[in-house]
Design a protein around this nucleic acid. Structure first.
Length: 218
DNA sequence: AGCCAGGCCTGCC
DNA sequence: GGCAGGCATGGC
C-alpha cells in the first residue's frame, strides 16, 4: 500500500487530537524505564507497577542495587509481573551491561550511533526489538520508533500486508517520519491508547478515529 | 472461566 | 530465517 510522511502524520494528528498528550513512559528515572521495559514483556502494565512498587520499597532503583539483590529475593519482588524466573535474569544482565559498558547510566548509550547502540541492546539475552527500541526512545531519548503487537494489528487493519514483521514496520516508520523524540514517544503511546479502546482482537472499530479505514478483522 | 496483557528464547525445520 | 511452544501472574 501507498505510504508517505503525510499519511503517517495524518493518522498521528487524528489520534493526537482525540486523546491528547499521553506523557509516556510513566517512570521517575531512565533506569526505571529500563526495568519496566523488561518487566512489561507480554504482561499487563498493572502487574508491572506492582513489581516496581515492590522493588522501590526494597531498594533505590540503580543497576548496582539490582545486581546486589539475591536472585530468589528479586524473583519474589517481581513475581506480580509474571515470567519472574527469566525476567529476574534479564534484569541482572541488562544491569551489568549498563554498569560495565555505559558507566552506570543508560543515557550514555547516546554516545553511540543509533544502529550501534541498538545492536548492543539486541545482543543482550532477553532484549528483543521492541524492548530495545523502548529503552532507546523512552529511557535514552533516542528517536528509535517502537513497534508492538498493537501497532501491527492497527496498521494491518488500515491496509498493511498481514505478513509484515517488526523489522519491516520499523523501516517504514523510520523512513516516513521526522526523527523527533517527542513525536515518536507520543505516536507510540497514542497507538497503544487507541488499540486498547478499539483494536483488540475481537473488538469492532466503530468509534475509532480511523473507523473509515480500519475495517478489517485481525 | 477463559482470554489477554506495552515479548523473547529455544529447539526444531 | 521462520515458526510453535514455553514462560506466569493478575484483571476483566
Amino acid at each position: 500500500m501507498e505510504h508517505n510522511q503525510e499519511f503517517f502524520l495524518k493518522i498521528y494528528n487524528l489520534m493526537d487530537e482525540r486523546y491528547g498528550e499521553q506523557n509516556w513512559w510513566p517512570a521517575d528515572t531512565a533506569f526505571e524505564v529500563v526495568l519496566g521495559a523488561i518487566l512489561t514483556q507480554n504482561t499487563n502494565w498493572n502487574n508491572v507497577e506492582q513489581s516496581i512498587k515492590n522493588l522501590k520499597k526494597e531498594i533505590i532503583l540503580t543497576p548496582q542495587n539490582i545486581l546486589n539483590i539475591e536472585d530468589e529475593k528479586l524473583k519474589d519482588l517481581i513475581k506480580p509481573s509474571g515470567f519472574y524466573n527469566q525476567k529476574a535474569e534479564r534484569l541482572k544482565i541488562i544491569s551489568s551491561f549498563i554498569i560495565e559498558k555505559l558507566g552506570c547510566d543508560i543515557k550514555n548509550i547516546k554516545e553511540y550511533p543509533l544502529i550501534t547502540g541498538r545492536r548492543m541492546l539486541l545482543n543482550l539475552k532477553g532484549v528483543g526489538e521492541e524492548t530495545a527500541d523502548s529503552i532507546l526512545l523512552y529511557a535514552a531519548d533516542i528517536p528509535s520508533f517502537v513497534i508492538d503487537k498493537y501497532t501491527m494489528r492497527m496498521f494491518y487493519r488500515i491496509g498493511f500486508d498481514i505478513d509484515m514483521k517488526y523489522r519491516k514496520y520499523y523501516e517504514i516508520f523510520m523512513d516516513n517520519l521526522p526523527h523527533d523524540v517527542k513525536l515518536f514517544k507520543q505516536y507510540h503511546a497514542l497507538i497503544v491508547e487507541n488499540s486498547k479502546l478499539f483494536c483488540r482482537k475481537k473488538a469492532v472499530c466503530k468509534g475509532c478515529p480511523l473507523e473509515r479505514t480500519c475495517l478489517k478483522k485481525y
